[in-house]
């Protein structure tokens, strides 16, 4: 009678299992101060494996400091940060090899060409240089014609492309992009986001910051808004866009108007634009027909109608503008 053979598990089975069950990133109560000024004020948020997560905020909000704490460039004041279940302080060897960081500032090793620098960078992460992967990066980021140039001989856009390649050369599980498209042309932005989304589809979790809110709206699944060192919103993109539960309704009428018709004074806020346009902010569940009825009752003839849901930019401004700070999360 044959014995039941239990297949041997790989030595690192449980650690791999734990990692795969962990969140890609957990930030718990992280604080950071510089010279007594608190720039990150006890923030908390998580990123699930496979997400593209946007961390948005005005300049000086603390985004780059947060990224620096994740990557190990900054010491954590207090609190904890974990990458795939590993603590970035106690298990820094593990967390750093799983993370690729593209910094906001252009950082170059000026002694080397792109080809040399990519080879070295793969090694810095303890990963043997993978020619196929490197060629794919070079190809997708259109670095081919410049591969033997010294890094300081590249144009601004090329430097950004090279920095993306550098952050990805060791095939990280968590890719952090700190304003990757700052100051680069539309073509690069488009190809970069296409590539980033492809990388994400293959399993890499992405944390990005950008000031191009339209781009964040297009690629991010969840978004956190950071202001003055605090996370003031952290939701799925769709939920965030519904936060204020209002939409814009723009109506163009045939007749010239100078005042809001009396039948429409109940709708607030409202304004006249041009000589023929009326703009209203309505609750999302409010039907436009009630406004149209009011216009019809006022004897006006509608020539065009347009509705617009709130954009991420509007949500962002409301969360971050002076005096509208919501409670921290």
């Amino acid at each position: 009678m044959g014995h039941l053979r239990i297949p041997a598990l790989p030595r690192n089975f449980f650690s791999v299992l734990c990692q795969s069950m962990s969140k890609a990133l957990e930030i718990n109560g992280a604080h950071k101060s510089f010279d007594g000024v608190e720039v990150v004020k006890g923030i908390n948020f998580d990123i699930e494996p496979g997400e593209i997560f946007g961390l948005l905020g005005p300049n000086g909000a603390g985004k780059s400091t947060t990224i620096n704490m994740i990557g190990g460039v900054s010491h954590i004041g207090s609190g904890s940060i974990r990458v795939f279940g590993k603590d970035v302080v106690d298990d820094y060897m593990d967390t750093r090899r799983m993370t690729g960081v593209m910094h906001q500032e252009v950082t170059l090793d000026v002694f080397f060409s792109i080809a040399q620098a990519l080879r070295l960078h793969s090694g810095y992460y303890g990963v043997p240089y993978d020619e196929k992967w490197a060629n794919l990066l070079i190809d997708r980021l259109a670095l081919g014609p410049h591969i033997h140039k010294k890094t300081n001989q590249l144009s601004g856009g090329m430097k950004r492309r090279y920095m993306v390649a550098k952050a990805l050369i060791h095939r990280p599980k968590l890719l952090i992009l700190d304003e990757p498209t700052a100051g680069v042309d539309v073509e690069l932005r488009r190809t970069l986001w296409d590539f980033v989304q492809d990388v994400n589809r293959e399993g890499t979790t992405i944390l990005l910051t950008t000031h191009y809110l339209q781009e964040a709206e297009e690629v991010c699944g969840r978004i956190a808004i950071m202001n003055k060192g605090k996370i003031v919103a952290c939701e799925k993109k769709e939920d965030l866009l519904q936060t204020f539960e209002q939409k814009k309704l723009r109506i163009r009428v045939a007749d010239k108007i100078s005042d809001i018709p009396a039948a429409l004074t109940g709708f607030t806020p409202k304004k006249i634009y041009g000589n023929h346009g009326l703009e209203f902010c309505l609750d999302l569940d409010c039907s436009a027909s009630t406004v149209l009825d009011g216009i019809s009752n006022s004897g006006l003839v509608v020539s065009d109608i347009e509705t617009e849901k709130p954009s991420l930019e509007e949500v962002f401004i409301r969360f971050t503008e002076e005096g509208s700070l919501t409670s921290e999360l």
Binding site: Y125, P172, G203
Partner: peptide, 26 residues
């Protein structure tokens, strides 16, 4: 794209690469 996040890690390769970088630099 045939790309998967990496699980390989050679503990002394970062040291060797930095040493190589430093020698190549000078």
């Amino acid at each position: 794209m045939n790309y998967k996040p990496n699980d390989i890690f050679f503990p002394w390769l970062p040291f060797y690469s930095l040493l190589k970088r430093e020698v190549l630099r000078f």
